[in-house]
Design a protein around this nucleic acid. Structure first.
Lengths: 206, 206
DNA sequence: TGCATTGGTAAGGAGTCCTATCCATACTGC
DNA sequence: GCAGTATGGATAGGACTCCTTACCAATGCA
């Protein structure tokens, strides 16, 4: 019998194939394929540079340029100048793109439904394990930094005595627990390296 | 803050992008792309019909036919007649294909490494949650039946009193625990529906 | 025997994603 | 102030995925 790790990797691959198949169906109404749908969903939350998108999706900048071009050609997005750097451009959704992203976000998805159907304890354990997994990958520099709480300047780990809700988000001003930790938050702003390292230590200390 | 389910789905997407990127690198030495590598790894365990492969990977039979053709054209696989049905063909690896699959299986992969680096408790919780997730998807008929213990005729759930190793595999003749449950076993043989349902009940009863 | 079903391929087209190359802006040191 | 280098990005050419539609052949049921 081979190891747990292989079984887990196998499960991840199965689930991602299902998600991709679901995105084919969901995007078909708009003439979007899975890749375009993912990019659109991403920039609908916050416009990004092509290079950031390429890093996020794990493709070359050239490939991302292709995909963005087809999104632009279909009228779902536009390239706009980035005020911070005149070499750069941000990819932003058009009105039509925002509407499509909204519908995509609410489209039924078998995997998400199955996650919802999971017992609460399993779901929390799953999220916790995945957060640790992604942190490990970040520390091994295998995955680009995400918009996750652990790297956000608004995050205050273990700031409260309440064991159920020890953390604090200074942006929205609420206490929350491990189960509500975000891996991808629209309000994320990167923390300075020193602060991020301190947060990590404080988070692990609990 | 949006729900846990969305965060989990986000994590799954991130990890699958990473796996795919890793497969590009791993397969590059052989002239294999990620899709071809996945198919090859699959048939190396056990030859399968194109329709089964298409269902497994969530693509249309026509697409699978394309991919198999390119695998055949490169000499990694061959189509052979299926004795059980003269319409059908099985896709089997060539000697070269088996060797490539062997090297692919041992190629370093950041995600697998990170899973290994996870604390044992997290890893077990992750696998357990994923098995439940996939079972839920099977029952919702969103995912084709896998080669998992729960649907195998060699599986004897809760056959032993040992709490750590309650299950039994009649094929290899060993007792094992939840942590060693397989989602994709090369020795899998589907159990009759009646037996599978009984196994499910017996498994859940524990 | 007749016909729907199932396994599979062929053709045509959109799009992904690669490598390689090139352009423009931005930093860096003298 | 200006070369040299780094960075953000687009373009070109090519391999390939994956789709839809259409078609053939074996199968299985009425």
């Amino acid at each position: 019998m081979s190891g747990q790790a292989d079984q887990i990797a196998f499960a991840l691959d199965r689930l991602s194939a299902l998600r991709r198949a679901g995105r084919w169906r969901a995007g078909a109404d708009f003439g979007l394929n899975p890749t375009q749908g993912e990019i659109l969903s991403r920039i609908a939350v916050r416009p990004e540079r092509a290079a950031e998108l390429a890093a996020h999706f794990g493709v070359t900048p050239a490939s991302m340029s292709d995909s963005v071009s087809s999104l632009v050609a279909k009228g779902f997005a536009a390239r706009e100048p980035d005020p911070a750097d005149r070499r750069a451009q941000r990819v932003a959704p058009s009105a039509k793109g925002r509407e499509a992203a909204r519908q995509l976000a609410t489209a039924p998805d078998a995997v998400t439904a199955a996650i919802h159907a999971l017992p609460g304890r399993d779901r929390a354990a799953l999220l916790a394990a995945l957060i640790r997994l992604i942190r490990g990958l970040q520390e091994a520099r295998a995955i680009p930094v995400q918009r996750m709480c652990l790297t956000c300047r608004h995050f205050r780990p273990n700031a409260h005595d309440d064991a159920a809700r020890p953390h604090h988000c200074a942006f929205v001003g609420v206490a929350f627990g491990d189960a509500d930790l975000r891996l991808d938050c629209g309000d994320h702003e990167p923390a300075p390296a020193r602060e991020a390292a301190a947060n990590r230590r404080r988070f692990d200390a609990a």
